[in-house]
């Protein structure tokens, strides 16, 4: 399994749970690394059910949004599913303003997201 510096990866049944190790996802070098680690889950490890748990994430920039959008595309083209959970209100507002809540499947918490994969 790949070594990750920006994310923590675990499995619950068929669902791969991703947690972010950075509280603020804004440093561009870090975002590039984050993107590569996330894409690897789909492209190298062929993981079909991804849950991104944003607990502890306080800030993310539009460059990070770009990586999430690209990840979502890769998951969908790999016939997988991606959900997000535990997003704090300020970041949720960013998703709403940019209307990304229309393309992302956003759930309140991890339990709700896990059961939505069933």
């Amino acid at each position: 399994m790949a070594t990750h510096r920006r994310i923590d990866v675990s499995k619950l049944g068929d669902v791969t749970i991703v947690r972010f190790l950075d509280k603020k996802i804004l440093d561009e070098a870090g975002i590039l690394e984050l993107g590569a680690e996330l894409f690897g889950l789909v492209e190298l490890e062929n993981r079909k059910s991804l849950l991104l748990n944003f607990a502890g994430v306080e800030f993310l920039s539009s460059a990070a949004l770009g990586k999430l959008i690209t990840l979502d595309r890769k998951v969908k083209s790999n016939k997988g599913r991606m959900k997000m959970s535990n997003i704090r209100p300020e970041i949720l507002e960013v998703f709403q303003i940019t209307k990304l809540n229309k393309i992302f499947d956003i759930r309140k918490d991890e339990a709700e997201a896990i059961s939505a994969f069933a």
């Binding site: 539009s62 959008i69 690209t70 979502d72 960013v94 940019t98 209307k99 229309k102």
Partner: peptide, 21 residues
């Protein structure tokens, strides 16, 4: 406008809009 239906999944172009909002 990144909120347009055919632009929703474009990875770039949100910064200026977030600043304005």
């Amino acid at each position: 406008d990144c909120r347009l239906e055919d632009r929703l999944d474009a990875p770039n172009g949100r910064g200026v809009m977030l600043m304005r909002t």
